[in-house]
Amino acid sequence: MTRVLDIQALSKGFSLHHLGQDIAAFDAISFSLDAGEFVLIKGINGAGKSTLLRTIYRSYLPRGGAVVFHSAHGPIDLARAADVDIAHLRRTEIGFVTQFLNARPRVSAEALVAEPLRLAGESADAALHTARGWLSTFGVKEELWQAYPSTFSGGEQQKVNLARALILPRKLILLDEPTASLDAGARAALVARLAELKENGAAMLGVFHHPGDVADLIDRVIDLTPDAAPEEDREDVAV
């Protein structure tokens, strides 16, 4: 198995200076992830699931430990890598899928979805063509493709977001409740796309509101609930 991620004794907490408060999110978590593996993170509200994903993506700065990512250029510790290196990896190898779209004024749905492809060097026409394909797959009505998503319904925005986030294959994909509030059709399209990406070797780490949706993909479960067994294998999944 090809290793993609080695997390060693990762800790995260927040010092809220104005409140004189310190919030511990998680302490000394260790696990690893191989290519083509799908790991479900579970735990009660506030257990630190989103925080773990954001810390790996470096939206949050870890307090200690290492997040060794085996990039195309060799291993690199995401906990300490330079900001520009992190930005580079986010453009090329590491994806983050949430339920929220970052709409921008006067940027059409299809342009938003095509953007990662254009940034990766595809021609504008080819990128647009592929983008329309994915909008259609996720069930975004054709009359919306050229409209600005800031006025779309929550579900429609979410579909645009999924199309954009999953249009490029990535070595590591982090997912934070991407199915919440999606209709059945879009959910099925998402699961099919995740299966395809997994088949092609993507390593995935995700939190799912309804883990049943992705039951067939899950290889392992990590429970962040305090005092839970640190890791269960597939047979133990109680989804």
Partner: peptide, 13 residues
């Protein structure tokens, strides 16, 4: 505050 110091860029040359 225990922010870890970051390394110099390695991927971006």
């Amino acid at each position: 505050m225990t922010t870890m110091t970051l390394e110099p860029p390695r991927l971006v040359r």
